[in-house]
Design a binder for these strands. Structure first.
Length: 315
DNA sequence: AACCCGTGGGC
DNA sequence: TGCCCAAGGGT
């Protein structure tokens, strides 16, 4: 089954695949696992140019990662987004000495879902299983003209199509085909190695259904408390920007505070509009205070980075 | 199943 | 510009 298709995919991969990606040229399971977590909902270019190598240099082994303070891990993750990934990565490093090879064991670890478990199994342990990320999903939808498929159906198709002889190259190839040929818009069907078995190539952009997003706007008042030339920041505790340091959000700014200006930021699900106020404390409150230099050593989010810049620009 | 969780690329 | 979207996981 699919013998010819598998051969075509393998030939395409050797000719046109992204063979030089660093996580494709290592046997170290930790390095492969790390790449899978960093690449969740994150483009290859971002991970490749700014995060993957520095993170490995700072935390060269699962052991060193587990022994490090979470704040250090978050600092290396700063700017990459979805910070629960860093928290779960660190947690997993404290739980195991080595990554398990079984999908059932991998999926029990925090931050490893069905896809990442399959990816680690296929790429680190060369198991004959398919993966199921954004590129593969789009390809499978087009191959079978699926507009809004269930996860179950997608996995059935994936297991049917996977090349069990060379699952590593097959899975890497599928992602490359999705990233360079089977594009969301204007796919290059005329040069696609899968075009022989693709039922959706006449109207590829019909599959799968586009996501529609609501982007409401939220208003916030940010209060920068200053005491002896140092700024007050607190470490966030909820799910949002977990573990990162940031400025305080208040309902009503202190009446003696000075209006600095506005900062905006766009997230996936909402737009944030911050009015920033400055307030000089007479006595220190129960939060920590940092100089601008000291703030550089903390892990903070993009919004708070913008707020620091606004503060510096108005001084 | 649907929603929350960040940031930046690319058009 | 504004919008879609990216090697998803947790709930």
């Amino acid at each position: 089954m699919y013998r010819k298709t598998h051969q075509t995919i393998q030939e395409w991969y050797q000719q046109s695949g992204r063979l030089d990606l660093p996580w494709r040229n290592t046997d170290e399971a930790y390095y492969i696992y790390l790449s899978e977590v960093m690449l969740q909902q994150t483009q290859v270019k971002t991970v490749l140019e700014r995060y993957y190598i520095p993170f490995i240099e700072r935390f060269p082994s699962l052991k060193s990662l587990g022994e490090a303070p979470l704040d250090d891990v978050l600092k290396m993750w700063e700017g990459l987004g979805y910070y629960n990934r860093a928290k779960n990565l660190h947690k997993t490093a404290t739980l195991v000495d080595e990554l398990p090879s079984d999908i059932e064991e991998l999926i029990k670890l925090p931050g490893i879902g069905k896809n990442t478990a399959h990816a680690v199994a296929a790429f680190a342990f060369h198991q004959p299983v398919p993966i199921m990320e954004a590129n593969v999903k789009r390809i499978l939808c087009r191959l079978h003209q699926l507009i809004k498929p269930t996860e179950k159906r997608l996995w059935e198709i994936a297991y049917d199509l996977v090349d069990k002889v060379n699952p590593f190259d097959y899975n890497q190839a599928m992602m490359d085909i999705g990233a360079t040929i089977c594009l969301p818009r204007n796919p290059k069907c005329e040069i696609c190695p899968l075009s022989d078995i693709c039922k959706g190539k006449e109207e590829p952009e019909r599959y799968p259904e586009k996501k529609k997003r609501m982007v409401p706007t939220r208003e916030q008042n940010i209060l920068i408390r200053i005491y002896e030339d140092k700024l007050s920041l607190t470490q966030r505790e909820g799910k949002f920007l977990h573990g990162l340091w940031g400025f305080e959000s208040v309902k009503i700014p202190e009446c003696a505070s000075e209006y600095l200006g506005e900062v905006t930021h766009v997230y996936t699900h909402f737009k944030l509009n911050c009015k920033v106020y400055l307030y000089y404390e007479h006595t220190p409150e129960h939060s920590d205070y940092f100089s601008v230099d000291e703030i550089q050593k903390l892990a903070i989010s993009k919004v708070d980075e913008k707020i620091v810049k606004l503060f510096l620009a108005t001084m």
